[in-house]
Design a protein around this nucleic acid. Structure first.
Lengths: 240, 240, 240, 240
DNA sequence: GATGAATGAGTGTTCATTCAT
DNA sequence: TATGAATGAACACTCATTCAT
């Protein structure tokens, strides 16, 4: 059982406790009671600072996400060439996901609108719009809640997608002419679906470690080098 | 709101309704009330047939899983060579996941022991054993419940892992000498961690479609051909 | 797990199963599902023969009670003198309760109106009437149900009470002049409250065996001899 | 319908309501809904304070039991000689049971392990151990729950048993040489089975008043004097 | 600013009873 | 006659949220 530094401000202690509990239990099964017990504070305090369960979680996520985005932008801007941009992105992302696997699984799977029968897309004005695949009405407040998590995924993916897009544009990466892979790109984003698909494909596996095969102490650089090699050159021993 | 054929036996209607509700809501947020309302039946009927929520879900999963395993074994045995085995596997798996994405997301993420602070592994006798990463006791019945879902993941992965393992053994696929990727293989399974990692990496992305980029009507064969090509030869336009 | 002779008529098998289950679980916690499973029959059959749970239980009790009453009357009529009548009564009762302890505990405690805030008594016509101690109305059908169990207790006690009453009337037993022990006797029954109290006092202990102190194989005659001696002469080594 | 003083703290009101409802309905048939309705509170409040139904009931029992044990020890230590110790014990117990008849019936009959096919006894270390008479497994938590009620019975009996044991040891009370009455005594407790049997026999009848023969206003001292006389000298008018 | 007592809608589960076959 | 599928009211228990202090 983690013990939280009693000298920290209550707000910080709640966030630390929330991270611990959400990571272990998932969003739905985490309880505010466990969080305040761990933070050694009262329920009123939690609500004073965060308003409700969802805002508490989002605050947690948002802070980390913003920091991650800064890092991703900085580190990939610095790198030179597709390959080193890719490796920079992955190094950064892998380190992040290793520390925040539990929380990001929640965003990717539990809170992802796309897994709740809801299809987020852009309308003609380039604004996000949610469509229920089952014809149900989506309440205004649900919409806002769902969308802000979706945007987080989108932003994180977009950095990688941009790299891949550039790679395709300048002929470094394949451009597979497969019409069935839908283009969800908009003028505003210029992401081809293929790039998104590739991006997702690329690091989805990293985030999870379903079978715990990757040693927790291993060096990021070495692992990402392997992954980038697989991604660029494939798993075959020689061209087939 | 789907309407279920009123002439079907209650048991079938419950299963159909359960699939619908679990797929949309996830395991925890799905309620038996919604299921019976959709199935137009009583709660007692559901419990008569399935005993409890978890058994209802597992019944749903098990039936589909068994059928899938039969198909996977048959279709990959028939195929000749690593590449066509890979493609056969993916064709089969992709078709399956497209129909059962919601349910399989639950198994992969929500019910996956590895995402609940629990580490499943083999003991010296080759039997499964669960270890809590947080020092909490795992109740006997929780253990059984978690394990049966984990075994499903394991079985489905193992077919692909075997193909990849063979590919490495005969030099067709790379064998990356990366010691930090842990070997979880046991004498009984002979799965190298790399094979597992590759297997997971390979189709994790397919299962999800976070961004709905793949058209629902697209041809499986064409898509899997692209994926296999990516997997074998990589995304680079030429060897780098 | 008892196995019931499959050649017996369904009705008999249900009664045998019901006796087993009620004895082990008590009235409320016994389930009809367990009974029909043990009887290897259907729910409809049970309801066809017995109508509802309470009738099933009462049928079980009534049959045994009627046989017991016959025995009690016969055996005490035969005996000569208070002491041997007492001993005869106790022998009979003890043997009965040993075989039917579980069922009779239900009648004495679980279904006893007096333990449910209800006071059964005679009205001016000598008819039974139930009065709620909490001012609640007693539904007509509840009244009938409660009363029939109460009458069973009453009848079984009355045989002993009559013996004790006779003993007091002819000076063999003490008549303690304690006005606070209420007279519930009616012209029809002529039971003084003291006799009832003594009767109850006498064999209440036998029925229960809270601490399992009495060996299941012990001889009835020997035990009842001790009890009657205690009852008549007390536990003191000499008159005190 | 009792009305509970609205100025009392919720916790106290729940306890008062619980006592009322458990006493009238018995343990199993008492519902928490009725309790909270009577206490005029919410279900969450009940669970906040007591955790579950069984803890609520046990809280009720434990408090009263502890107070009773103090009184029993004090009052019997003060009394001089077997007879006055007996009378002191009975006075105390009778007063207690008159106020708590409903609750103690539950402990004696409904929750008594010995009435659920379970045999509590000491093992070689003097620790309590439960054995199922029907070969069923006893779950760890069921064991703890059953045992704590059994210990209450045991403690209350033991005070009296000690008095009776002393009476036998110094020849004041009969020692009936009846081998069939099993010795459950352990070195730690030195209770002969006879003493236990006598103790139970003695006051089992008092607790219940199946037939309401004892006037609720009657004086304890007078009644216990009669009972002790019956117990010591028997019911016969003269030695028989 | 901090608290925690109080709440009640909601959730999985049980089981006596009904009724069409 | 015998059945068992179907039911739904009832129950113990959970937990996000409110609000008076």
């Amino acid at each position: 059982m983690t013990v939280i530094d009693a000298t920290l401000p209550k707000k910080d202690r709640i966030l630390i406790a929330a991270e611990d509990v959400f990571s272990r239990r998932g969003y739905t099964k985490a309880t505010l009671d466990e969080i305040i017990a761990l933070a050694d504070t009262g329920k009123g305090t939690l609500y004073k600072y965060f308003g409700n369960k969802d805002n508490l979680f989002y605050t947690l996520i948002e802070e980390k996400h913003n920091k991650l985005m800064e890092d991703l932008h900085a580190i990939t801007a610095e790198a030179d060439g597709i390959r080193s941009k890719l490796q920079a992105y992955l190094n950064c992302m892998l380190a992040f996901l290793r520390s925040n696997k539990g929380l990001w699984l929640i965003v990717w799977y539990e809170l992802n609108a796309a897994h709740q029968g809801i299809h987020p897309d852009f309308d003609e004005n380039g604004d996000w719009v949610l469509t229920s695949l089952y014809g149900e009405e989506i309440a205004k407040e649900d919409e806002a809640r769902l969308l802000r998590y979706y945007k987080i995924l989108w932003e994180e993916i977009s950095v990688l997608a941009k790299i891949l897009q550039d790679g395709q544009d300048n002929g470094y990466l394949k451009y597979t002419n497969c019409p069935e892979i839908k283009t969800v790109a908009t003028p505003a984003h210029k992401l081809t679906s293929e790039a998104i698909f590739g991006a997702y494909h690329l690091f989805a596996g990293i985030a999870n470690g379903v079978f715990h095969v990757i040693d927790n102490d291993m060096d990021n650089g070495e692992l990402t080098a392997i992954i980038v090699d697989y991604f660029l050159n494939g798993h075959a021993a020689q061209k087939v």
